[in-house]
Amino acid sequence: MAGRNRKPTHLKIVEGNKGKRAINGQEPDPDYLNDLTPPEFLTDSAKVVWEEIAQNLRDARVLTVLDIPMLQMVCESVATYRNAVKKCEERHAKGSIGESSSIGYWEMIKSMSFKQAMAAMQQFGMSPAARTRIAIQPQGELDLGDKESKNYFT
C-alpha cells in the first residue's frame, strides 16, 4: 500500500516544515519548457489538446522540460476521452439494439480515459482543488538559462 506523495521542498519551506523532517536542499529545479511545439509522435487529436493547454501551463509556471511525458499522457487521455464521448453520442443517437455492446465498449473507454486524464491533470493543478496543492519554484523569467546564480536553499 502506497503512502502519501512527498511534499515538494519549497512547499515545506512555505508551510514551515510542520513534520520537522529533513529538507532536501538539492531538489531538482528543471528549466521551464520554452518550445511548446507538440511532439511529433502524438496523435493528431492529442496535438490539438497540447495546443489548447501547453501555453496556459507554461504561463502558470508549472510546465518544465521534465514534464513533457506527463503532459503527453494528459493530451492522449483527453483526446481519447473526447473521441469516446463522440462515439457514445453517435451510438446512442442510432438507438440500435445491435449496437449495445459497442456502446458499452465506448462507455468503458470514456470512463477509463476520464480517470487517466484526471489523475495526470491533477499533477499540473488543472482543477480548483488540485491548484491548492501546487506551489511553483521561483525561477525568475521563463527564458532564463542561468541557473548557477540561483540558490534558494542556503
Rank of each mutant, 00 (worst) to 15 (best):
G16V: 09
P69V: 03
Q116E: 13
D67C: 13
Y32I: 03
K115Q: 13
N5F: 03
D29F: 07
S149N: 07
S113F: 14
V65Y: 13
P28Y: 01
G140D: 06
M118R: 15
R6L: 14
E15W: 05
S111P: 01
R131D: 04
P38N: 05
F41N: 09
A93K: 15
N83H: 05
N24W: 02
S100T: 07
K147Y: 09
A117H: 06
R21V: 08
N5V: 10
K7Q: 03
N151V: 07
N151S: 11
A2F: 07
T154S: 06
I53C: 09
K47G: 08
M121Y: 05
V62Q: 00
L33H: 02
Q55V: 04
L63A: 00
S127H: 08
G3T: 00
C75A: 15
E89C: 08
F114Y: 15
A54K: 03
R6H: 02
G140K: 12
Q55W: 01
G16W: 08
A117T: 05
M112I: 06
E40H: 06
M112Y: 13
W50H: 00
I109A: 06
Y105Q: 07
A129E: 15
K94Y: 02
A119G: 07
A79H: 05
I68P: 10
S77G: 02
A130V: 10
A117I: 13
P28F: 05
I136E: 04
S111Y: 11
W106A: 02
I68D: 04
A130D: 12
A54P: 07
M118S: 13
N83I: 07
T9S: 03
N24Y: 03
I23T: 03
V74S: 01
L66K: 13
K115Y: 12
W106I: 01
F153D: 04
T154C: 05
F153C: 03
M108V: 04
K115I: 14
F114R: 15
M112N: 14
Q137H: 08
M70K: 11
S100A: 12
A46L: 10
F153R: 11
H92E: 05
C88F: 02
I68K: 07
E27P: 00
P38E: 01
A130L: 09
N5T: 07
Q26T: 14
